[in-house]
Design a protein around this nucleic acid. Structure first.
Lengths: 204, 204
DNA sequence: GCGTGAACTTAACAGTGTTAAGACCATTCG
DNA sequence: CGAATGGTCTTAACACTGTTAAGTTCACGC
């Protein structure tokens, strides 16, 4: 049965080629600028060939983003394991999240900035459990709970606090991406300010 | 010269008809679902007639959003004038911002959630000074400064803090819009939690 | 050698933003 | 009064878009 495996590998290779091309175009031209034909041209296949590997355009974008967001999860794992103090890990993790988003603005925006769910059949996959985005979120309740346990943060509803923290860092990430021309003065400082505000607000 | 005025009024009427139709479609079908032909069909004109009143699709969307965001500015003015205590005004204003965004999710998203600026010629009008969005932002530094003056908040860089606050409330607004299927438990409580966290974080 | 089935392409449909050219028609001027 | 102007609007067209249906090609198992 070595043949089937080789076939599978071959098929997987094209799939990966598509993903790579799409990732590139998405980074360069954004969600709106990504078209099936552009992807196809880049890898010298017809546009319809993509449909043998992905259900539709949104599926392709979703897969590209998942692949990339796996990097974020890895980075957050790194931060968590390198910092025994959960409060330090929390703060550094939040900052890492923002920086990651800014390093991949178009992919971040495609993942967390586009209202999927208009079309009831398309199920809004980015917010389903198990996605990389949700795995990244998962770090928050774990760290927050540990902080409260160690009395480094005041007692509070862990899930609510985690959601609020996520909303906050999503806000600065998204806004810096969408409004690069706004007079931020020092974007990095604004991000730190927000993180400090939120965490300090949880100490009392 | 009464003739020209009548003409102007007539022209203005069609312009308003277009704006109304576009506002409606934007609310119902979102930014991606709004097309020139749909707008035109709704008011029984040809699609190209719209170009006599608006430069292009993005200009139309921008004008629709500006018109609507004027309502937000008005609401914030209301909050500010009704609450002599700047800290109370600040908290209520932040909450009002979120609620406004959730009442007009598609318009909010079109204003603050779409990366304009890909196309260098299109100048990203939503982030220019003088827009309603920027006027709404203007409330923040005023109230923050007043809070610091009255020693209700700790001394800090007013602009940086204002940006951070904006980022925070934008985050929860945007995320609630984009990810309605996420398990928020109680979205309203998350919004309050975030606002409390941020403001409390500024007290120290 | 032949049929099967997977991989892939071509052609087509319905839709998009936008521009160029022309139609219409009230106002203005000779 | 008739002709010309100029603004409003339409039709036709171009170059795109996502997606489906049908057809081609070709390696594999029998």
């Amino acid at each position: 049965m070595g043949v089937k495996e080789r076939r599978e590998r071959q098929k997987g290779l094209l799939r990966q080629e598509i993903l790579d091309a799409a990732r590139d175009i998405l980074a360069r031209e954004g969600y709106e600028g990504l078209s099936m034909r552009k992807v196809a041209d880049k890898i010298d296949y017809s546009a319809t060939a993509i449909y043998l590997h992905f259900q539709d355009r949104d599926d392709l974008v979703f897969c590209v983003c998942e692949e990339l967001m796996a990097g974020l999860v890895k980075e957050l794992q790194d931060v968590a394991s390198r910092n025994p103090d959960p409060l330090v890990a929390l703060k550094k993790g939040l900052r890492r999240y923002v920086d990651f988003g800014l390093r991949h603005p178009q992919h971040y925006q495609a993942t967390f900035g586009i209202p999927h769910g208009r079309d009831p059949k398309k199920e809004a996959r980015h917010q389903e459990p198990g996605t990389m985005g949700m795995q990244a979120f998962g770090f928050l309740p774990r760290l927050v709970a540990e902080c409260i346990k160690q009395k480094k943060l005041a007692k509070a509803d862990v899930h609510t606090v985690s959601c609020a923290l996520w909303a906050g860092i999503h806000g600065i990430t998204s806004l810096l991406i969408v409004m690069p021309n706004f007079k931020w003065n020092d974007p990095s400082r604004v991000a730190d300010q927000l993180i400090t505000m939120m965490v300090e607000g949880l100490r009392t």
